[in-house]
């Protein structure tokens, strides 16, 4: 049956089936739509403590829901669904499923800290937002953000060789985030960027000398060389291994 005020209903609560038999009666067609109740039936009493283990959320239990954070929030001004006050409340009561409904916008916090500066209870909502974004990502509730993919590649190279190769970081980052390098170089921003860097315009104007002196030829060659031979920091040895172990231990300490 048609629902007349569909805007009032959370889409995930509407069940529609093509063929529906209730108590042996075929009700397909007119009566094939059901609305699940939206009653909250449980709190997860452990959830708040769990989120508090992510750095930034240590004070979340202090919140008294005044709404100053949301009111001052840079992102809320753009999108009224971006509501730190609300998410903090959900953390306190342990309503994780409700938070996850907003997992695609929570990461948008720009860390301007307006909320933290205005909060009368020193909850530090900006930290809570960070903690939530980490929770969503590290416990596999959402896709990895591009910046995390970048960080991971960056860290991997640091640990392996004590240094990074810019071009390798970029190529792997583009690959891991399914961005087509060739397409970007030929028709996208990458081509334009490289052309500008290499003073292409000078060449087009016929200033060959200026082109040659201003183009970082050696640098490009060096980058190309490093792509294949991957130099290491001197006497790096087992440093990477030890560092990785340390990072792992710290993570375990923080998140149990």
């Amino acid at each position: 049956m048609a629902i007349h005020e569909k805007t009032l209903i959370d889409p995930s609560k509407v069940l529609t089936s093509d063929h529906l038999v209730v108590d042996g009666v075929d009700v397909s067609g007119h009566w094939n739509t059901m609305i699940l109740p939206r009653t909250l039936r449980e709190y997860d009493d452990k959830f708040e403590d769990h989120i508090k283990q992510y750095s930034g959320a240590e004070n979340v239990h202090r919140c008294w829901q005044c709404g100053s954070c949301t009111n001052s929030c840079t992102m809320y001004a753009q999108n009224t669904d971006f509501n730190p006050r609300y998410w903090i409340y959900l953390v306190r009561l342990g309503l994780a499923d409700e938070i996850l409904k907003d997992k695609d916008i929570i990461w948008q916090c720009v860390s301007c800290n307006k909320c933290t500066n205005i909060c009368p209870k020193d909850v530090r909502p900006e930290g809570v937002m960070k903690a939530l974004a980490h929770w969503i990502e590290s416990e596999g509730h959402g896709e990895k953000s591009r910046s995390t993919v970048f960080d991971e590649e960056f860290a991997r190279q640091c640990l392996a060789r004590g240094r990074i190769e810019d071009s390798e970081v970029m190529t792997n980052f583009f690959k891991d985030t399914q961005q087509d390098i060739k397409e970007m170089a030929l028709n996208g921003w990458l081509g334009i960027f490289v052309a500008r860097m290499n003073k292409w315009t000078e060449l087009r104007k016929g200033n060959i000398f200026r082109f040659l002196t201003r183009t970082p030829i050696m640098h490009s060659l060096h980058m190309g060389w490093s792509m294949f031979f991957k130099p290491k920091t001197k006497s790096w040895g087992r440093t990477g291994e030890v560092l990785s172990q340390y990072v792992k231990e710290q993570k375990e300490l923080a998140h149990g």
């Binding site: 939206r38 009653t39 909250l40 039936r41 829901q65 609300y86 959900l90």
Partner: peptide
């Protein structure tokens, strides 16, 4: 009714 989440509640 939890007035902050605008949802009915039935909590044990």
């Amino acid at each position: 009714e939890d007035t902050l989440v605008k949802r009915p509640i039935v909590i044990p």
